[in-house]
Amino acid sequence: MKKIRIVKNVFMVVSMFIFSIVIPISAIAGDYPKRPITIIVPYSAGGSTDIQARMIAAHMKTKLGQPVNVINKPGGGGAIGMVAAKAARPDGYTIILTASGPVSVTPFRTNAGFDPLKDYEFMAQLSSNDFSLNVNSKSGITTFKEWAEIATKDPAKATYATPGAGLQIHLVMLELLEKMNLDLPHVPFNGASEAIGQLLGEHVFSAMVALPDSITQYEAGAINTLAVASDKRHPNVPNVPTIKEQGYDVVAGGWFAFMAPKGTPKPIIEKLNSSIAYALEQQDVIDRYKKLGLDINFTNPEALKTFVTNQCNKHSAIVKKFGL
């Protein structure tokens, strides 16, 4: 008798569990959103991804009429947050604000537990930043050409710092150095602040970091920014040439984008996309982006998908070539 009761109870629990998964999936789009939305941020609170998520969330809330919460799932170079987003229910109530590193670099270097192109729906690109190559202004080097000459003459001393080994910026440097036929010693640090600090202390010869991380020091005259890796010159530093202008076809930059678990219904993606667009039009958001030094760069889901696919192909090829 007792055994039967246990079986019955187990059956009840299991069926309730199944229902609880199935029902929310079937109730889609029309009256979305009915409850609070969660944005996963694959980095710690207080970083630039987190700050963007919280700024956007505040305005998405007004547009969607439901609270939008930000939850940090840091770790593994963003992999932990990506895996959490992959595992979330594809009902539009859990989305992720992620960045170029976790999406297009990490999964090609190690088994991170997700496939960026197969496990997610693309929603919207949000913003981007340029990468800059810098030297300490005490070095007297003011142009990319001078830097290249010294590096060619004495490559052993021409160290370069990056915010971390195997990060996107490191890949860009490898790509550039290969085109220049140079092999310089790489000194990776933990984050851009450390790399810039070491450059200021003249412990490294040059450093490549994201432009927002170097621009203050450039404006203060402490460092010379020799080139940016973008397609066009950046309006904040109009006097700094691009690497392309110097004759090396290296075009790269960091980007931030919203993605959702695979299977999230299209109408929901569209609705979220337009609420993100709305947030990016608000004056206070525009002002804060300017202060952070990040460039607003909004795209629709299709454009994001093509862009990310290209980025993944490009980065996986570099990773393979250099055996990272």
């Binding site: 770790g75 170079g77 088994n111």
Partner: peptide, 8 residues
């Protein structure tokens, strides 16, 4: 040991 949570 292949655990993503230990990557960092």
């Amino acid at each position: 040991f292949g655990i993503p949570e230990l990557l960092s």
